[in-house]
């Protein structure tokens, strides 16, 4: 359904065209452009940013406003277009995405190390943080989490886990704790598009939704040999 990539310039051109255009089908709030003359992408952008679809002026926890949350970066834009096109990921797009991810990477000054798995477990279980709108999450009252369990199995004894992402039960015992594995795991938490272009996985490091310390704590939960993630489930789990 999509033929041209939409750029802000193209969007601006379309909007100007539509606003100045002769055929205005939508007379209800005068000045509104003719929706039927716009591409679905251009109309969607218009509905978000110009037509009062969202409370864009609300403040966000990271500073700035809700509007910033709706502005797509290039990875979000490319992955949206890919999904809408219904096409499989081609090599050129995959290369572009992982190049963008590569550019975004930042590593801890003191090197990548495992933190405290107990803190990592709390982060993995908590879905708090960064919600805005009718109820704002207050980061001063509660530390944001990573909500890993929403999508992944981790501790094999936890039954309430999601399946949108792959199971990570036994993650460390299957992979070990070599420097290469630490870096690989860090990269995935920071920006997983490096290895999995257009993955569903949020970019926790890139967006700053988890701090450097929190990432190392979650890494410990995944990799430390004494973490519950890496224990066998008891034969008779009482749940």
């Amino acid at each position: 359904m999509k033929t041209k990539p939409h750029t802000p310039a193209l969007l601006a051109a379309l909007l100007t065209m539509a606003a100045a255009g002769s055929a205005s089908a939508d007379s209800a709030d005068g000045g509104a452009p003719d929706y039927t003359a716009m591409s679905p992408q251009a109309l969607a952008e218009y509905l978000i940013f110009e037509a009062g679809g969202f409370d864009l002026d609300a403040p966000t926890q990271e500073g700035g406003t809700a509007r910033d949350r709706m502005v797509q970066d290039e990875i979000q834009q490319i992955c949206t277009e890919l999904k809408l096109s219904g096409k499989p990921l081609d090599r050129a797009t995959a290369a572009r995405i992982s190049a963008l991810a590569d550019e975004s990477m930042k590593y801890p000054e003191k090197g990548i190390a495992l933190g405290d798995w107990k803190k990592g477990e709390q982060i993995a279980r908590s879905g708090y943080g960064f919600r805005i709108g009718h109820r704002n999450d207050d980061h001063a009252a509660e530390e944001p989490g990573g909500n890993c369990y929403a999508c992944h199995q981790l501790d094999p004894n936890e039954v309430a886990y999601g399946t949108v992402g792959p199971s990570l039960a036994g993650y460390g015992s299957l992979r070990g704790t070599s420097d290469a594995m630490l870096k690989h795991t860090y990269d995935i938490l920071y920006n997983a598009h490096l290895y999995f272009p257009c993955t569903n996985m949020p970019r926790f490091g890139y967006h700053g939704t988890l701090t450097e310390q929190q990432i190392s704590d979650v890494m410990a939960y995944l990799l430390a040999p004494d973490s519950p993630v890496n224990q066998q489930p008891p034969a008779t789990a009482e749940r």
Partner: peptide
């Protein structure tokens, strides 16, 4: 974690 959707908006 996206902005509040406004009831009755075209979006």
């Amino acid at each position: 974690r996206q902005p509040e959707s406004i009831a009755g908006s075209d979006a």
